[in-house]
Amino acid sequence: MSEIIVADGVTKRFRQPKRYSGLAGAIKGLISREFTEVRAVEDISFTIRAGEAVGYLGPNGAGKSTMIKMMTGILVPTGGALSVLGRTPHEERMVNAREIGVVFGQRSQLWWDLPVHDSFELHRRIYDVPEARYRENLAHLTRMLGMESYLDRAVRQLSLGQRMRAEMAMALLHDPRILFLDEPTIGLDVVAKDAVRKFLTEVNRERGVTIILTTHDLQDIEEICPRLIMVDDGKLLFDGELKRLRTALGARRRLKLDFATDPGPVSLTSARLVSDEGASKHFLIENEETSLVDVLAELGGGHGLKDVSLEEPDIEEVIRTFYQQRPALVPQ
């Protein structure tokens, strides 16, 4: 499959006028012309191939929206090279616009006072979608998203979940090759989030649309995106499969052994004891290669072992510790 997005050392810096505090500061602000520089995106490189679904994860202010805005041609990068569908986004913004769909979770592209239908029809005209194709897409998307009941209601009367579904449908009406979504699940309730995730997964698998979505909700990525790009403070922290994240981060599995009666101290080389409650003991397995069979073989029989449980580490927790430690390394 071909590479449709290539980011090479992309950087974006913003200049902001300095603010001063207090009354004296405010007066100083009347004439001052000093700026502070915000490094929103720092030297980020990745490539995305057609048909991928990529989650762009990071806490607030990590530079996710800024990256999306550069890829969609809204912002001009301060440094580095960016290519989307073989074009430089900000130079051929309008040409690119026909081949991409963009959804902003926090801002609506629908006309507030008018029925959803009208916004769709305007979209059809702006993107010059052939009538037949438009009707086919609309019917299909309406069915997938269950929008039949509210297509002719004014947008202001819709729930946030209904609106977000309409936003996504609109972004797909012109058969874009890439769909960018900036925090599509923000503010939605559990049911609506679930609908959005299912829909995006389907769009990616069945229609082959490349999906890039930003989020700070890991579950979005677990369900939709096999690949994860993690950023913080403008910098790339991880790029790869979600499954590999644990390995890359040296994540440890938890092992719990339950005995019929307290067998006394048990020590193992394949697992490290972390807590001993007598009849039940907790271990951490640090080596990714070690299997349960290895552990049981080492333990041997005769301890009156009743139950064994091996827990994969909670990914949320892994990431939390990861951000807390902020390692400088970029695993790949």
């Binding site: 805005k69 969609t72 809204i74 913004r93 309008m94 616009a97 963009v102 702006i126």
Partner: peptide
Amino acid sequence: DTLMVKPI
């Protein structure tokens, strides 16, 4: 931003 991503 939403206007900037339209082909108009």
